[in-house]
Write a protein that binds this DNA or RNA. Structure first.
Lengths: 239, 239
DNA sequence: ATGGCTATTATTGTCGACAATTCGATAATT
DNA sequence: AATTATCGAATTGTCGACAATAATAGCCAT
C-alpha cells in the first residue's frame, strides 16, 4: 500500500487548511497587500501554476476567492487583474469604516473592561515609544493594531471582519499612494482621547470621539490632495 | 475561416457576464437565498455539473465565489456545504446592519432630495396598500426594498453592497426560521417616522430614528424567541 | 514610413481522466 | 448485541490536454 503520498510533486503537506487553492489564495493575498503585485497587474495563471509545479485548476479557484474578496477583478477571456482602488473607493471605505468604528465606540462605552483598556493603553505606550524613536513604520502598524483591537472588543466577529477587510484595502491604497500618514503625533493624541472617553463610559461621547478620530485620517488626506478630493466633498458631508 | 462559433457543445450563450462559473454562481445563490437549498446541505459538484452538461471545473469556481461570499462553507476532502446561520450570526448581523443604517440616516438628513423622499413615500404607500390587502409577502419584499433604496441614496456603493449582503443572509435565516415578521404594521408606522425625520433634516434625530427602526426587528425577534436570545443580551447592549 | 490585414503566439475556458479520500454497508470479532 | 475491521461506491483533489479567444508580430499595399 504505502501509496507514496505524492499529491502534486514536492508537496509535503498542504496540511492545515489544506487544498492548494487555499494556500495560493493566502500567498496571492499577501503579495497584493504587501505591494509585490501592483494594481492593474494581470494574474498569469500559467506562470503561477508552473512556478509551483501545480496545474491551473487550484490557481483559478484561488483567484475566484480573491475576486469575491474584492482584491482582484475578473474579465471574461482576459483573466484576473489586481484591483485598482480609485479615490472614490477610498472615500467610500473611509465612510463605512467610520460608521463601524463610531458604533464600536458607542457600544464599548458600556461594555469595555479594565483589562481591555489596559491592553489598549499598552499599545498606546508602545506607539509613543516608537514615535519618539522616529520609527514611523512601527507607529503605522501599531496604529492599525490599536483600531483592530478596539473594534474586536465589541465582540462582534462579523463587524471585526468587515472592518479588517476594509482596512486591508485602505492599506493597499496607502501603500500605492505613498501616503503612510506622516502626521502621526495627532493620531497618538487622538488615541489618548479615545482611552479617556472609554474610561468615561458615556455612549454619546464615545461615539462622537470615535467618529471624529476615524475621520481625522481622511481629513489629513484631503489636505494632502485637495484637488482630487474636492469633487467628492459636495457629494457627502464627511468633512 | 468562419470557425463555427460553437463554444463548448450545446452552449449557446452565457454571453453577458459569461463564463459558466458566473452563471452557476448566480443560479446557486438564487437557490440558497430562495431556500431551494437548505442550510447544511452538501453541494454535489458532480450532480450540478452533469445536470447542466458541463464539467466540474466551473462548478468549483462558482463554489469558491460563494464561499468567499459567505453563503457556503468549504471542508477539505468533504466539499462545499450551504452555510448554517446560527443565532449568534443573526445577532451580529443585526448589529452591523443597524450601525450602517444609522449612519445612513445621519448622512441622508442633509443630503436627501425631494425626489428621493417621494420615491420612498411611494414605496411606503404601496406597503400600506399591500398591508390592507393582507399580502404579507408583498409587504415583506417592499420593506426590504425600502431599506435598500434608503441606504442607496447615501451614494456610497460599498455601504450599499455590504448592507445588501448582510440583508441577504438575514433573509435566508428568516426563511429558515419561518419568521417572516408578521408584525408588519409596526414596520409601516416606523417608516412614516423615518420619512418625517428625513423631511426634518436633523442629523441626530435621523440617526436615532434610523437606529431605532433598525433594531425594532431584532426586538420583535427577541420577544418571539426570548430563551434563545437571552444569553446574547448580556454580551451586548443591543436591546 | 504607416495603417490595416493576416499569421503566430500566448493565455484563458472547459473538459475528461485518474488518484486520494471519505462515506456506507456488510462482515468479523469480542 | 455491540463494536470494530474491511471492502466497495461515491465524491473530492488535481492534473494534462485541447479548443476558443485575445495579444502580438510580421507583412503588404499604399
Amino acid at each position: 500500500m504505502i501509496s507514496e503520498k505524492k499529491t502534486g510533486s514536492s508537496k509535503v503537506a498542504a496540511m492545515s487548511t489544506a487544498s492548494i487553492a487555499n494556500s495560493i489564495y493566502e500567498e496571492l493575498e499577501r503579495k497584493i497587500v504587501d505591494g509585490d503585485l501592483d494594481a492593474g497587474d494581470r494574474i498569469n495563471e500559467n506562470a503561477i501554476a508552473e512556478a509551483r509545479g501545480i496545474s491551473r485548476g487550484p490557481v483559478r479557484e484561488a483567484c475566484r476567492l480573491l475576486q469575491q474578496a474584492g482584491l482582484i477583478e475578473f474579465k471574461v477571456n482576459r483573466g484576473f487583474f489586481v484591483r485598482v482602488i480609485e479615490l472614490q473607493d477610498v472615500f467610500e471605505i473611509y465612510e463605512v469604516r467610520a460608521a463601524l468604528f463610531a458604533d464600536a465606540g458607542r457600544r464599548l462605552a458600556e461594555t469595555i473592561t479594565q483589562d481591555q483598556i489596559d491592553e489598549l493603553a499598552s499599545l498606546q505606550a508602545q506607539m509613543e515609544t516608537a514615535h519618539k524613536a522616529g520609527d514611523n513604520d512601527a507607529v503605522y502598524l501599531l496604529n492599525r493594531r490599536f483600531h483592530e483591537l478596539t473594534i474586536s472588543f465589541v465582540g462582534n466577529q462579523r463587524m471585526t471582519e468587515i472592518y479588517k477587510s476594509l482596512d486591508k484595502e485602505l492599506h493597499i491604497w496607502r501603500k500605492r499612494a505613498l501616503i503612510l500618514d506622516s502626521n502621526v503625533s495627532n493620531s497618538i493624541e487622538e488615541h489618548q482621547l479615545i482611552l479617556d472617553a472609554l474610561r468615561g463610559g458615556n455612549r454619546t461621547v464615545c461615539a462622537s470621539i470615535f467618529l471624529e478620530h476615524s475621520l481625522a485620517g481622511f481629513h489629513r488626506l484631503q489636505r494632502t490632495m485637495p484637488e482630487q478630493t474636492a469633487k467628492f466633498r459636495r457629494s457627502s458631508n464627511l468633512a
